[in-house]
């Protein structure tokens, strides 16, 4: 092999019958007399041409049963996967409504509490305020008269 410089390109061209006649003859002649090239070319040819064989497999008679079984499992997991978000989607508006009612109710309670306490404060202070006002007015009036 060491003294032989036949390129892969040439061997491939010979295999695919893509060489001009005179070059083809020279190469074929060389291969006949060079054992290294002979082995290489013959091995390439026999390896590559396995591709020409027609190997047809017959399907397993239980193929459909297996597909059906796998498909059922797949559909089951898909259903469970879809069920969780669907449940959540259903619960979401209910939760939102409940929160809204709670906030509304809370506000009403707060307003009630505020108005109740305020009204007592106002009623407690109101007489004092008027009394003070009255006292001040009286003092001023006295001062003016003086």
């Amino acid at each position: 092999m060491s003294g032989c410089n036949i390129s892969n390109k040439k061997l491939i061209a010979l295999l695919n019958d893509e060489l001009p006649t005179h070059k083809k003859k020279i190469l074929e002649n060389h291969i006949q007399n060079c054992s290294a090239c002979q082995i290489l070319y013959s091995e390439l040819k026999q390896t590559y041409y396995i591709i020409e064989e027609n190997r047809v497999l017959t399907p397993n008679p239980f193929l459909y049963t297996r597909i059906k079984q796998k498909l059922n499992e797949e559909l089951k997991t898909q259903y469970q996967k879809n069920l969780k978000p669907a449940l959540w989607q259903g619960i979401k508006p209910v939760l939102f409504l409940a929160l809204l009612i709670f906030i509304l109710w809370g506000n009403i309670e707060l307003v009630n509490l505020y108005t109740n306490s305020n009204s007592t404060i106002i009623s407690n202070n109101s007489t004092e305020f008027f009394l003070n006002d009255l006292e001040q007015e009286v003092i001023e009036k006295y001062l003016l008269k003086d």
């Binding site: 092999m1 892969n8 061997l11 491939i12 295999l15 695919n16 290489l40 390439l44 390896t47 590559y48």
Partner: peptide, 10 residues
């Protein structure tokens, strides 16, 4: 493919 086969053979 043929190149690769030759490369591995060599």
């Amino acid at each position: 493919v043929q190149k690769e086969i030759l490369k591995n053979l060599k």
